[in-house]
Structure formats: structure tokens, C-alpha cells
């Protein structure tokens, strides 16, 4: 019985790992055959069949940047509201929490349509980096908030009692104790949101659009990596090779974000929280 359980556990983990390895291998093998670093620095030519993806990388980073600039302060603020004010305003907190639950279940295409209606049309941002980034921010907000809030809830009881016993005001407590404590979770939430955003196509098609030139400003349309992959595979005959290469860049980007933030988190924990 014991061995059976162990075997099944190993088997499922093994299958999962195998799928990941196969997928990465497929992408890397198919793209490395034709890969050349100029792919990263050139503009796309003839609909993406030839040339590189430089403007697309830049657009992607800009969209992510807008998304992060919005999501970090707003998400942290909401997470603090949910965790710190739930005693005082239980009703509001309950409603916000439910709203976030519902939001997290909404398919991303709906965010795309809503983002288009709100940012592109109503607020007049048009198809732009702004609209794309803001839509992604709304879409990833529930995940980000939940990560941060659950992090804040792990705060040791003493870190709440002691400030009260010293007569510290809530502002000071939040600023000096709770936010520093929450920052690693903000990073984790940020990484998860970046991961989710990098993978997103449906929410971006109607918001940041698919113009593949270099965006001149944040009000300009820009094509994200995932959309480029989608477009090359679905709409551009002969675009497969470059689709593979773009996918590889995307995966490498995800690895880099994860790796980078893991390092940041580790040094952080060593220095501040633990012990």
C-alpha cells in the first residue's frame, strides 16, 4: 500500500515534469536550429516571417511596465484594506472580497472586451500600450491581491500586538511594520502577475492591438510576444519558425523573471525577516 502511494505520487510528478521537458525541448530544438541573436534586435519583415522581434519585445516590456506600475500600489492598497480594516468595515471588505473572487473567474477575453470599451473607447486611449497594460492590471489584480493578502495574514501576532502596546498609530504600523513585511509577497504576486500577463493574448488583442512596429509612445499600439506567436501561427503562412523562436524568447523571459526574483527574495529573507 505504502509503495503504491509512493509510486503514484512519483508517477504524477514524473509525468508533469516529462511534459514540461518535452514542451521546452520541442520549442528550443525547433527554434535553436535557425536562431541568431539578430532576431532580438531586428524589426519584423513580411508579416513576421522574416526579420526579428525587437519592437515586439519592447512593446511587451512596456505593457508589463504599465501593468506593474498600476497593480503594485493598487493591489497592495487593496490587500492592506482587506487585511487591516476587516474588523471595522466587515461589510465593505466582504463585498470587495466577493468582487475579486468573481473577477478571478472571468475569462480573459471578457477583460479584453471590457478593456476595449473602457480604456480604448470610453477613456479615449485607443489601441495603445496604456489600454493593454491597464487591462492586464485589472485582469491580474485578484491573483496579486490574494497573494499579498495571504502573505500579510501570516504576520506574527506579536507584530500586531507590540505596535498597539506602544501606542503606535495605524499609519505608522502599516508603513513601518506591515508593508515591509508584505514586500516579499508583493514580489511573489508581481512575478505571478507577470507570468500571467506574458501568457495573455485575448485580453490584449482588443486593447494594445497588433501593430508590429516600434511604439512611439505609450499611447501607441504595440504587439505583445504572445500575440505575435498567435498571429504567426494562425494568420501567417510560413510563420512557424519565427513563432517557435518567439515562443523561446517568451519562455526565457519567464525563466529570467522567476530566477531574478527568487534571488531578490532570498537575499531579502536573509537580511530582514528570518531570525
Amino acid at each position: 500500500m505504502e509503495r503504491m502511494t509512493k509510486f503514484l505520487a512519483w508517477l504524477s510528478a514524473g509525468i508533469l515534469l516529462l511534459i514540461l521537458v518535452l514542451m521546452v525541448q520541442d520549442i528550443f530544438v525547433n527554434s535553436l536550429r535557425h536562431f541568431d541573436f539578430s532576431f532580438l534586435s531586428q524589426d519584423p519583415l513580411s508579416g513576421g516571417r522574416k526579420g526579428g522581434i525587437f519592437p515586439i519585445i519592447i512593446s511587451t516590456l512596456l505593457i508589463l511596465g504599465v501593468c506593474m506600475i498600476v497593480i503594485v500600489p493598487m493591489g497592495l492598497g487593496t490587500a492592506l484594506f482587506l487585511s487591516e480594516y476587516s474588523d471595522e468595515h466587515p461589510k465593505v471588505v466582504h463585498i470587495v472580497r466577493k468582487a475579486l473572487e468573481i473577477l478571478s473567474g472571468v475569462p480573459s477575453i471578457v477583460f479584453g472586451l471590457f478593456g476595449n470599451a473602457l480604456f480604448c473607447v470610453f477613456l479615449g486611449f485607443g489601441f495603445s500600450i496604456w489600454s493593454g497594460g491597464l487591462t492586464l492590471a485589472i485582469m491580474s489584480m485578484p491573483l496579486f491581491i490574494r497573494t499579498v493578502e495571504e502573505g500579510i495574514r501570516t504576520i506574527p501576532k506579536n507584530y500586531r500586538l507590540v505596535p498597539l502596546s506602544l501606542g503606535l498609530g495605524r499609519t505608522t504600523t502599516i508603513r513601518s511594520i506591515i508593508i515591509p513585511y508584505a514586500l516579499p509577497f508583493v514580489i511573489v504576486g508581481g512575478v505571478l502577475s507577470i507570468g500571467r500577463s506574458l501568457a495573455e493574448t485575448a485580453a490584449l488583442i482588443f486593447t494594445s492591438g497588433y501593430v508590429d512596429r516600434m511604439p512611439e509612445s505609450l499611447s501607441d499600439s504595440g504587439r505583445a510576444l504572445s500575440i505575435h506567436i498567435y498571429d504567426l501561427t494562425m494568420n501567417v503562412p510560413g510563420g512557424d519558425t519565427n513563432a517557435y523562436k518567439t515562443a523561446m524568447v517568451l519562455i526565457v523571459l519567464i525563466f529570467i523573471t522567476n530566477g531574478l526574483f527568487t534571488i531578490v527574495l532570498k537575499t531579502w529573507y536573509k537580511k530582514r525577516i528570518i531570525l
Binding site: N158, Y159, L161, V162, P163, L164, S165, L166, G167, L168, T172, S176, I177, P180, Y181, R272, I273
Partner: peptide, 26 residues
């Protein structure tokens, strides 16, 4: 009131700050 009536808990409870900030903050 809590400034006037201080408390020292059973477990040592420094805040996750530097040594001096623990005193400077209050």
C-alpha cells in the same frame, strides 16, 4: 494611555526592524 502604561511581554518581542529603530519608531 499605552505610552503611559508600558508593557513587556512574556516572549521577547522586538519588531522586525534594526535595534535602534525599535526604540526610535515609538
Amino acid at each position: 494611555l499605552r505610552k503611559k502604561v508600558g508593557i513587556v511581554f512574556q516572549e521577547p518581542t522586538p519588531l522586525p526592524l534594526s535595534i535602534e529603530s525599535n526604540i526610535i519608531l515609538p
